[in-house]
Nucleic acid binder design. Structure first.
Lengths: 318, 318
DNA sequence: TGAGTGGCTGCTCATGTGAGCGCACTCTGC
DNA sequence: GCAGAGTGCGCTCACATGAGCAGCCACTCA
């Protein structure tokens, strides 16, 4: 669709424009137009062709809202995703991004969730942001997928998110109070035996859609990293950990990395995440491009909601 | 085509935009798109409908050149013209307008003239401006339609225009040296008997396309008016003369006005002009709107080449 | 709980549409 | 002046397309 073959003369220009107007704007059929202008319908077709190739008719696909449809489609096609939403956020600070992305994720979830679905929520600040603005869902059961990390800057925990969504949906809420990481594997095993925890994890095979965050295994880019010990940080980096998908650790090429830390976590495993039909991640922050690529390559993820700068970074280097 | 029915959710937006892109920009068929996205072709059609009605797909018809295709078409439809070219002139002074309009008229003539045509040229400054920039025509015979008025501000006469075009076309030139108006009817009759004049006027029935100017019967808006006596000016105004089409005088409603002045002119009559299949007028200057309307209503004129401000004025009050 | 209701999806047939082919006309070189 | 190449134009057939209608599903109210 290059702009070439300039229409020859002025009469031709006016005629072509008139025909194009009748066809594209007035919605007349080519035959009607042919009769109106006293020419064959083939000539009409040719005029319309030249109108487009010469650039006289310009077709523009642009969404006026905050969704960047172009980047969304690129991301979806590049990584073979089912859903891909890229929002244009006016601000680039973490909180603004989180809220924008969270709101878009809430809209997406409200759109795609059906009465038969069981929703899983992993722990992430963006997931909490989404939960806060999620509209009423049609009686969807909600399952907590991970423990929570206590953050200095906010009261939200995964438990709150699960409860919020469950009450908003009117569905059953399977939640528990437990941290995401504990000191040793024995404590973790003991916690998993807890009735609420065991019951929630027993619901895992029923979960059809889940929402998770993505962290980059670097300082300030992953709450899990920041909460980990200095030893764990280095050990996992040495193992090739690039990203954590709400607790599931994967390498840069997307393959899950078995870690000793996993035994000290109250979270679903990579296999359990893979069993969920549709996992949607909500990453934000421009520095997380490598982690997002890893997450999307892992095959664990079916959808993404993010913002333009991160989406562009993910595509640029992919 | 109102902007309504906003596409429901973000996933819907992205899907609709992707389908629209494939269809409108990539030129894929609906069936191909249906297979690609795993849906029925009917759903594709519906998505495309919503894409257009919601304003997600915007089709714009705009010519990047100096031709205002929209005004051209409006003018053509309003007055039932065969050709209508409206050029956007950056300047509004008479000379710039005349040259712009003349150039467009030259292009139009070059486009629509065929080897079988015989071209008639009436006297007008815009016709001379056109003649100066007319490209080579395919051996077209050229016939002078009127005598010339000597103007203080330019060397061009209708004779020059006829000769210029004829030499450029390689065709026969039927021209003569005579003024447009003379003192009395007897002189005019005598002049018409002159061999060159008679020969040129004898070619009139063969003329297939002609170019003429339009004047408003007011001071400074018609070279004929300006050259007329004070008595003639008032007499013709009293007769209801509104416009002169290179010597053919018409009322505001377009009907030709028989005048005594006509007998003192070396010019074709209204009937002779009507016999020419395609007369194209080249008016310019924003104050001539009423005259242009009169000319277009007369039925003597099949085409127009003018500029945006005048075209708009003609349409506004029509 | 069950029939009514509205919305969504996909099928059918008449119509619109596009690629290929042949005709006629024009241009060019001999 | 004439033959060959190029080009614009319209016809034909197979296919794509659109309007209308039937089925399905979830929701609603009795």
């Amino acid at each position: 669709m290059t702009v070439s073959d300039p229409v020859t003369g002025p009469a031709q220009v006016v005629l072509t424009a008139s025909v194009a107007r009748r066809y594209y704007l007035d919605g007349r059929s080519k035959i009607e137009i042919a009769e109106e202008f006293g020419m064959s319908r083939f000539k009409v077709a040719r005029l319309l062709d030249t109108a487009r190739t010469s650039g006289l008719v310009r077709i523009e696909i642009r969404h006026e809202g905050e969704i960047d449809v172009d980047l969304s489609a690129q991301l979806r096609d590049r990584f073979g995703l089912q859903h891909s939403i890229v929002v244009a956020s006016p601000d680039e600070d973490a909180q603004a991004l989180r809220e924008h992305v969270g709101r878009a994720a809430a809209q997406l979830l409200a759109e795609i969730i059906t009465p038969g679905d069981v929703l899983g929520l992993a722990w992430a600040r963006s997931v909490s942001a989404m939960a806060r603005v999620l509209p009423r869902l049609p009686g969807t059961p909600v399952v907590q997928l991970t423990g929570a990390l206590t953050l200095p800057d906010g009261p939200d925990t995964s438990v709150d998110a699960v409860r919020d969504v469950a009450t908003a949906s009117g569905g059953v809420a399977h939640y528990f109070y437990a941290p995401l990481t504990v000191a040793d594997a024995a404590t973790a095993r003991a916690l998993r035996q807890q009735p609420e925890v065991a019951r929630a994890f027993g619901q895992l095979p029923l979960v059809t859609k889940a929402v998770a965050g993505v962290g980059l295994w670097e300082a300030g880019q992953s709450t899990l990293y920041d909460a980990a010990s200095v030893h764990d940080r280095a050990a996992l980096r040495d193992l090739g950990v690039c990203a954590d998908i709400s607790g599931v650790l994967v390498a840069a090429d997307g393959t899950p990395v078995p870690t000793e830390l996993a035994e000290r976590m109250i979270a679903l495993s990579a296999e359990e995440m893979r069993a969920i039909p549709e996992v949607i991640v909500i990453p934000y922050g421009i520095r997380k491009a490598a982690a997002v690529r890893a997450a999307l390559r892992s095959g664990l993820v079916a959808g993404i909601v993010t913002h333009t700068s991160l989406a562009r970074a993910v595509l640029d280097e992919a």
